[in-house]
Design a protein around this nucleic acid. Sequence first.
DNA 1: GCCAACAATATTGTTGACAATATCAAGGCG
DNA 2: CGCCTTGATATTGTCAACAATATTGTTGGC
Lengths: 208, 208
Amino acid sequence: MAGDGTVYEELKAAILRGDFSPRQRLVEVELSEDFGASRFQVRRALHTLESDGIVEHLPNKGARIREIGIDEAVEITEVRMVVEGLVAARAAERVSDEQAEALLDVGRRMRAAVEVGDVGTYSELNGVLHSSLRDIAQHHKANGIIARLHGQMVRHQFALSRVPGRPSVSVVQHENIIAAVVARDPMAAEAAMRAHISSVIEALRAIA
Amino acid sequence: MAGDGTVYEELKAAILRGDFSPRQRLVEVELSEDFGASRFQVRRALHTLESDGIVEHLPNKGARIREIGIDEAVEITEVRMVVEGLVAARAAERVSDEQAEALLDVGRRMRAAVEVGDVGTYSELNGVLHSSLRDIAQHHKANGIIARLHGQMVRHQFALSRVPGRPSVSVVQHENIIAAVVARDPMAAEAAMRAHISSVIEALRAIA
DNA sequence: GCCAACAATATTGTTGACAATATCAAGGCG
DNA sequence: CGCCTTGATATTGTCAACAATATTGTTGGC
């Protein structure tokens, strides 16, 4: 029914929402029925998801959800570390006064959430902070790569958010990032971002 | 006729070779005749090339070679800078004695090529050096991203190699990278790589 | 009861035809 | 003369049917 390219969006959203489990087969006709789309459109969506690194395609055996192990998750996060470092540095160069104030506000709300123990809000603010930095940096290429990598990390991202005690550690790192960006200090901003994501990598390894 | 996925390889090679000019339309039937493939296969290849960032696809208007301006080329190279920095650091951690010797040999041949003024050989050795580092680092995710970015840069890469006087500058930078990797110093290797690619960015800006 | 050969089914891969859309050319009107 | 309308052509978008391949189930032999 839907002639748009929405099949891709919907299917991707469903996968990111966790509707499918790793290595689960994605049968074309099933999906086309579920989404009310033609097999043709499902096929194209699967192909795009494959180059997003979310789905893998085995010849003559169809598509399945790619399983991303700890090793690969670490690699992804390592790349994310340096690219988000670039974004942070660039944000420090370009941030406006209003944007700086907004960042400080996010920082304050993060600390408040941690003190109350509101993990959900903290996790949400975490996403807001990182995406705000991307908005400020306006580095199209970096943003695209980060988005792609993020899509591959959803499952581990979820696991990470459940590690107890992490918020109280990372809130300080986030404050350091914000302080450096607000101070218009690119080098410090990059260093702070890398320190932060570096600790995420350690937490990832600790899960395994 | 070719039932393989070789259409993608061939078409990509043709584009990278420079057989098409930026913004040139890629008509499906033309390509299918040229490559002796079906329109179906061409279509899939175009879709993949689109997610490679080499081709852009306008709805109902088909595919064309993406034109990458200086601004975007700079962005690409900025990302490449940090990701190759990561690769260099990792290479310094993992390099074996034989690999170290091979790197030193590449360095010597680079200097020799520069002194003789053999630009072609120098450019080739440049590629060998960077790809050797990727082989040593074994960072699958970083390597993939670098390859993707490289594909988008071919045209500018060519322009860069023609800038007179660049080899004599960059050969020193390359020697610094090699020295740091051979010394097993990750931080120095990353710094050297970033310094090198940073100067590439300056050269890029200078072209415009 | 277990294994191999083979048939039945399910699923992906491909094709050619057709529909939808855009591009271009020519003619008519102001 | 310029410009809009209209028709002709080129090109992409979609589909449904078919071919190729993999998976599953079944039968027969031992």
